[in-house]
């Protein structure tokens, strides 16, 4: 699983940091490093940028896995720098923001990144959303293409009228999920799966906010 993030516009970050002159920065060594939004280089660049804006950066850390439960302890090791800061700027996905937000110092936590989706990379710097974590996996019936995620409208019973030579009406660069599903099912000799009526989806498999006890 990779949490795909994008850095917020710097103006938005400075707006959120208004009134805080002393900042501690926390990045993440996993997904945000992979997406080049919160690794060592980006944290260093952010430090320089904030300093050029007249902020004082009290310290920084790139947490190995910011969403991990050891994050709180790791943040604790920087007690001095954090206590002398007015706020913590987190360059990790929202999971990391939550972990760092549970700090014992009660410091305001400001996200520097927007969390876009859970995705996969193609090794060329492009990330694709393939799962919407809907709670009711349909991949077995859909030849491994998720219509909830890959179809702009999340349609379950076939393509809409916006399908266009295998592309989507929303964006000529986007594949039509249902053309993909159709082609793969046909190749697999399982086109009858497409004829099966899919009833309205259960959007309350686990009602939000979602919590599951696994042990």
């Amino acid at each position: 699983m990779k949490s795909i993030t994008r850095q917020k516009p710097f103006e938005e970050i400075t707006e959120q940091l208004r009134g805080f002159s002393r900042i501690f920065i926390a990045g993440c060594g996993t997904c945000a490093t992979l997406t080049r939004t919160g690794g060592v280089e980006e944290v260093t660049a952010m430090r320089e940028k904030l300093e050029s804006q007249g902020k004082f950066v009290t310290g920084s850390v790139v947490i190995p896995v910011a969403c991990d439960d050891v994050t709180e302890a790791l943040v604790g090791e920087h007690q001095g720098s954090i206590l002398s800061a007015h706020a913590i700027l987190v360059m990790a996905c929202a999971l990391g923001v939550h972990r760092v937000g549970n700090n014992a110092f009660n410091k305001p936590v400001i996200p520097a990144l927007d969390t876009l989706f859970i995705g996969m990379d193609d090794g060329q710097g492009v990330f694709h959303e393939v799962c919407a974590q809907c709670g009711q996996c349909l991949l077995g019936e859909m030849a491994g293409v998720c219509p909830i995620t890959a179809c702009h409208k999340g349609l379950l019973n076939g393509p809409c009228g916006g399908t266009n030579n295998g592309k989507c009406e929303v964006d000529k660069e986007k594949d039509c999920a249902w053309t993909l599903i159709y082609s793969r099912l046909k190749e697999q000799g399982r086109l009858e799966m497409m004829r099966k009526y899919q009833p309205p989806k259960n959007y309350q498999v686990v009602p939000r906010p979602r919590t599951v006890r696994v042990f």
Partner: peptide, 10 residues
Amino acid sequence: ANPIEPQLIK
């Protein structure tokens, strides 16, 4: 529509 078969199935 192109391809037509998915439309016909729907």
